Simulated scan of single mutants.
Amino acid sequence: MKQAEMIKLGISIGDLNGIGSEIVLKTFDDSRMLDFCTPIIFANSKILNFLKKQYKLSVHLQVIDHPANAVDGKVNVVNVWKENVNINFGEEDPEIGKFAFRSLEAATASLKKDEIDVLVTAPINKATIQSDSFSFPGHTDYLARELGGESLMLMITDNLKVGLLTDHVALKDIANVITPELIIKKIKIIQETLKSDFRVRKPKIAVLGINPHSGDNGLIGKEDEEVLKPTIKRLRDKGDLVFGPYAADSFFGTKNYKNFDAVIASYHDQGLIPFKTLSFGMGVNFTAGLNRVRTSPDHGTAFEIAGKNEANINSFKEAVFKGIEIFKARKEYKDLTENQLQKQGRKI
Rank of each mutant, 00 (worst) to 15 (best):
M1R: 11
Q3E: 10
Q3Y: 06
E5S: 12
L9A: 07
G14N: 15
N17G: 01
I19A: 02
G20E: 09
D30N: 15
M33E: 09
L34G: 00
F42S: 04
A43Y: 01
N44R: 14
S45W: 00
K46M: 07
L48C: 04
K56Y: 13
V63D: 13
P67C: 13
A68W: 02
N76F: 04
N76P: 04
V78K: 06
W81Q: 02
G97E: 04
F99C: 02
F101R: 09
S103C: 08
A109G: 06
A109C: 04
A122C: 11
K126R: 15
I129F: 03
S133G: 01
S135D: 12
A144S: 11
G148F: 09
G149F: 10
G149A: 08
K161S: 10
V162P: 07
D167T: 15
A175Q: 09
I190F: 02
Q191H: 11
D197T: 12
G215P: 13
N217T: 02
I220Q: 01
K222A: 15
K222H: 13
E226V: 05
L228D: 07
P230V: 04
L235T: 10
R236D: 00
G253N: 14
N259H: 12
S279Y: 07
F280Y: 04
F280K: 11
G283S: 11
N291P: 08
E304K: 14
S315V: 08
K317I: 10
E325M: 14
I326V: 15
K328V: 12
K334A: 10
L341D: 10
